[in-house]
């Protein structure tokens, strides 16, 4: 897909994010907006996925022959739900049910309600990289050439299990795995550097044995695609790949940027209007 087309998708996804969060007055817009360009780049350009003749996506849990994506920081579910719906996994109209009673779009992603596109529950942080490693190992055992992607938060790096997985993957040469850290420098209680600094996270992963790529402009679609392509070219070489993706929390909505305030806060009616005014409706609102 052309960069401009991807940017158009991203604009619509950002509208979907703020509208979902506004409608139920809860959820996490900041990280969702920050990771929009990555998820659009993955689902609309980089990932190999089966597609039906009518453009919708078939879903089977095992994902044989497909690339898989695991969202470890499950609280940015609005961006995942929007990208899944917009790429054909379920009707876009269902985004209106986000976080409401009897919805398949739970506050945090789950397989429990059988939402196509979701392969694991996440929300309790630190577990996704381990799951992604397991899925990558299953692909190897199956002789499946698909790539497994995993997105984590930078605050999430404080969880111990992340480092169990970080140690495991290079030792076991999990080279069909591309992990991404959303380096937005913010977490619930404030800047990550103040809460509990990651210090030099890239150096930590490098010394654990990962190939680390730096994506300095994680909200620039061209840079995102370029880095994802480079990461893919580095798979199959006996080393897992990690992307340090610097993003702006709240990217695309000016008043949500540069603060951790919008980590888990919903916009009111006025704020919603202000946000939507900055985000062209490119694919039609649900």
């Amino acid at each position: 897909m052309q960069i401009t087309e991807l940017q158009n998708v991203a604009s619509q996804v950002r509208r979907d994010i703020v509208r979902q969060v506004h409608a139920c007055q809860s959820g996490h817009p900041g990280g969702s907006l920050g990771c929009t360009d990555l998820l659009v780049g993955l689902y609309f350009d980089q990932m190999t996925q089966k597609t039906n003749a009518d453009g919708t996506k078939p879903f089977d849990m095992n994902g044989i022959g497909e690339d898989l994506f695991f969202l470890s920081n499950g609280h940015i579910s609005p961006v995942l739900y929007s990208v899944l719906a917009r790429s054909g996994y379920f009707p876009v109209a269902e985004l209106a049910t986000f976080r409401k009673l009897n919805s398949r779009l739970q506050g945090h992603p789950t397989t429990h309600e059988h939402l196509d596109g979701i392969r694991i529950a996440s929300g309790s942080l630190g577990q996704g990289l381990s799951v992604a490693i397991g899925a990558a190992m299953a692909k190897k055992l199956n002789g499946d050439n698909g790539i497994v992607y995993c997105l984590m938060g930078d605050g999430e790096q404080q969880e111990g299990q992340v480092w169990e997985a970080a140690m495991f993957a290079p030792h076991n040469k999990i080279d069909n795995l591309i992990a991404i850290v959303d380096y937005n420098g913010q977490q619930i209680d404030g800047p990550t550097d103040k809460v509990l600094s990651n210090r030099d996270l890239a150096a930590k992963y490098e010394v654990f044995g990962w190939k680390v790529l730096n994506l300095a402009k994680g909200n620039d679609m061209e840079s995102v695609i370029e880095t994802l392509k480079e990461a893919r070219s580095l798979t199959g070489q006996g080393i897992p790949v990690m992307i340090m993706m610097v993003t702006e929390m709240g990217a695309g909505v000016d008043y949500m940027m540069g603060t951790h305030k919008w980590h888990g806060t919903a916009p009111n009616d006025e704020q919603l209007a202000a946000a939507l005014a900055q985000l062209p409706e490119t694919l039609g609102d649900y």
């Binding site: 694991i120 490693i133 397991g134 899925a135 990558a136 190992m137 199956n142 499946d144 299990q161 169990e164």
Partner: peptide, 26 residues
Amino acid sequence: PERFIQCGIAEANMIGISAGLTIGGK
């Protein structure tokens, strides 16, 4: 030997890897 995974003393990671392995039919 190809169907054994030594996880080291890292049980949380072992449970996560196990969950992931089922995605792919293991």
